[in-house]
């Protein structure tokens, strides 16, 4: 069975998100004064052959730890869909 893992990678709280800051300033300049904060991250889609959803999630997590995420500065969420 092939599963799709959707990985969201974003900077940890406390790590300067210069992109988020710049985007926030631009949006506020465009009149979005109700905008509280912006964080910019990455979306990575993985297609994984696995026995079941749990196994696919475990493999996606391994990939995050080994390459996709730098855990010193980033956090991640994994969502697995069929």
């Amino acid at each position: 069975m092939t599963y799709t893992a959707e990985v969201l990678v974003y900077l940890k709280e406390g790590v300067l998100d210069t992109q988020g800051k710049a985007v926030k300033q631009s949006l506020q300049r465009l009149g979005f004064q109700d905008l509280e904060d912006v964080r910019v991250g990455k979306y990575i889609q993985l297609r994984i052959n696995a026995e079941n959803e749990e196994a696919a999630r475990a493999r996606a997590k391994e990939m995050c730890v080994e390459l996709l995420v730098n855990e010193l500065i980033e956090e991640f969420d994994i969502k697995v869909v069929d």
Binding site: L16, T18, Q19, A22, L72, I73
Partner: peptide, 16 residues
């Protein structure tokens, strides 16, 4: 830094 031979991480310049 990415290979952990040195500590820390290198991020985008403040000026972008």
């Amino acid at each position: 830094t990415e290979s952990r031979l040195l500590p820390g991480a290198i991020l985008a310049n403040q000026s972008l």
